[in-house]
Simulated assay, not measured.
Amino acid sequence: MITKAIRNCLANAKERKWDKTYWAFDIHGTILRPTCQTGVISTEFYPFAKEVLQLLSTRKDIVRILYTCSYPNEIVEYVKYFEDHQIHFDHVNENPDVGAGAYGFYERKFYFNVLFEDKAGFDPLTDWEDVLKLIQTFEI
């Protein structure tokens, strides 16, 4: 469950005195309901996704990475769409902050602490609400 991953991430950050953590977010089937139509970008948020991402966008200790297979022209549209909803991503499909280092080689697979991805088990119909409750209840 995503809340367990978030709790583990934050516990590690506190223990290791990290000043930031890296959270990657897929778009389709995770943040927005897919249109399944070529050339038509998705615009319908899953319940609580917008609220969670807006709250996370205010945090300086969470680096938000947009993780998507969208075409470059669609990425431009999505970034603008999210910005219009006060949702900000620091990077798209990369994490230039972390490269090769003591914990691994991140030149071809970018580093993240938490992954929001429907294909990795994230359920957008239930998990966003759980994440919202978590971030409202605990200081993160």
Rank of each mutant, 00 (worst) to 15 (best):
Q37A: 09
C9Y: 07
E83S: 13
A49L: 08
T137A: 12
D127A: 09
L115D: 06
Y81F: 15
L134F: 15
D130L: 13
K17C: 09
L55S: 09
D61G: 05
A102P: 10
D130T: 10
A49G: 02
F110I: 08
G104W: 07
Y81D: 06
Q136T: 11
V63F: 06
E83Y: 11
Q54Y: 07
Y111L: 01
R33G: 04
I27K: 02
E77F: 06
I41N: 07
R7K: 14
Q136Y: 05
W128R: 01
D84N: 15
I75R: 04
T126M: 08
V79I: 15
Y81W: 11
D90H: 15
K133I: 09
T3E: 12
K60D: 15
Y67M: 09
A5W: 02
T3I: 15
T126E: 10
E139T: 12
R16A: 09
P72E: 11
F122C: 03
K14I: 09
P72D: 12
Y67T: 02
N8L: 13
F82K: 01
F116T: 00
G121S: 07
I6K: 04
K119E: 11
C69E: 10
T21W: 01
P47I: 06
N73W: 12
P124I: 03
E15P: 00
I140A: 08
I87S: 06
F82E: 05
L134M: 14
F105P: 01
T58V: 08
G39R: 10
K133E: 11
A120L: 09
W23M: 02
H91G: 00
D130K: 15
N113K: 06
T137D: 09
C69A: 15
H28V: 01
E77P: 01
L10W: 06
T30R: 05
I31L: 13
I6N: 02
D90Y: 04
H85S: 05
Q136H: 10
K17Y: 05
A120K: 14
Y103S: 11
P96S: 14
V131H: 04
T68A: 03
E117W: 01
N73T: 11
